[in-house]
Structure formats: C-alpha cells, structure tokens
C-alpha cells in the first residue's frame, strides 16, 4: 500500500494530514473537556437581570438561526456593482440569451481557429 503520490514536481502524502487532523481533534477535545471542568456552571436562577444584547431584547429561539445569505455578506457586497449585478442579469433564463452566446462563441472560435489554428 503506497500512501501519497508523485505530482511531477513534488510529493504529496495525505497521511501527514490525517495524523494532523486526528491530533487536532484530540487536542480540541481535551481543551473542551478541561474548560468544562474549570468553568463555573451556568445557572439561570442566579441571573440578576434579563438578558440584554446591546439594545435588543432577548432573542426568540427561532431567530437564533441565521440564513445562508448572511454568510459572505462582505464579499458579495464588495463585488455587487462590479460583477454580481451584471452577472445575475445575464443569467436571466431567457432562451434568446443562450442562443446569442452560442452564436458569439462560434464566431470567436471560428475567427481565431480558422485563421490561426494551423501550425
């Protein structure tokens, strides 16, 4: 059984990663266990006041889920005007757009290959 592969430029050995991942899991588990031992247990009846999150009231449980569009919000916002607006507009689902791109690609390839394809 040979683990790893020659890529032509170097050597890649996945076993190191597997070992690393296992070690990371064990380490994380130990830290979590240690923290659980040391931490003071939380008791609800000892609360002196209501939970207060920077001006908002206590969150209802169903609001604790946050939808997927909030992830990578910054990335999307940064590329909004430069890329996403035009790209989403292009993927309109209108059939003539699809045919338009076939024609354009065919023309470009024909011009490039027909006049430059031969050795």
């Amino acid at each position: 059984m040979v683990f790893g592969i020659e890529t032509g430029f170097g050597y890649w050995d996945p076993l190191i990663w597997v070992v690393l991942f296992v070690l990371m899991f064990i380490g994380g588990y130990l830290i979590a266990k240690y923290a659980a031992q040391r931490a003071t247990p939380f008791r609800a009846d000892e609360l002196e006041s209501e939970i207060f999150l920077s001006g908002w009231g206590e969150t209802v449980e169903k609001d604790l889920r946050f939808p997927s569009k909030h992830l990578y919000w910054g990335f999307r916002k940064a590329l909004e005007s430069a890329w996403y607006r035009s790209a989403v507009e292009e993927h309109s689902g209108i059939l003539t757009t699809y045919i338009f791109w076939i024609v354009i690609l065919l023309l470009i390839l024909m011009l490039l290959i027909a006049f430059g394809g031969a050795m």
């Binding site: 699809y98 791109w101 076939i102 690609l105 390839l109 024909m110 027909a114 394809g117």
Partner: peptide, 25 residues
C-alpha cells in the same frame, strides 16, 4: 484549411454539451 472550421464547430458544440462558460446556462 476546411478542417479548422470543423474544429470550431466541434468545439462550440461540445463546449455546450460540457457546460463550460459561456454556454453553461
């Protein structure tokens, strides 16, 4: 020289079948 036209046609057709941009829609 005609085969280069055929190559362009082939390539366009199979790029669509392969779902490569700009014929991925």
């Amino acid at each position: 020289p005609l085969i280069w036209g055929a190559l362009a046609l082939y390539l366009t057709g199979f790029i669509l079948k392969a779902g490569i941009v700009p014929l991925h829609m």
